[in-house]
């Protein structure tokens, strides 16, 4: 499975990762190699097999509808890159 530079850039964009133009060929070859490697999976026919998303066959436990979390804004925002008036700041969001 060989990826193209265009595909790699599309993936990097979906994942919001800046990659240098100069590094693109390296990513193309490394990612293609990995995809080739995982393509070994095609050796087995898995047609009727149920996919397994969880190691244990258990079901979701539910929590009671109770407010248990106090306001900790000061603590949480003490580690934020940029805040003002209690809000997290980011470059303008354009809709």
């Amino acid at each position: 499975m060989s990826l193209t530079a265009v595909e790699v850039k599309k993936i990097a964009h979906l994942a919001r990762l800046a990659i240098n133009e100069a590094d693109t060929p390296k990513y193309v070859s490394e990612l293609s190699t990995i995809l080739d490697f995982v393509a070994q999976m095609d050796k087995v026919d898995t047609g009727s097999i149920l996919p397994m998303a969880h190691p244990l066959d258990v079901t979701q436990r539910l929590r009671a509808d109770e407010v248990t979390e106090p306001n900790q804004r000061e603590l949480f925002q003490s580690i934020a890159p940029s805040v003002e008036s209690g809000l997290y700041l980011v470059p303008q969001v354009i809709e």
Binding site: V38, M41, V44, T46, I49, L50, P51, M52
Partner: peptide
Amino acid sequence: YLKAQKIRRLIS
């Protein structure tokens, strides 16, 4: 992804 999760079941 789905293929891998199926193989996961086979391994299990």
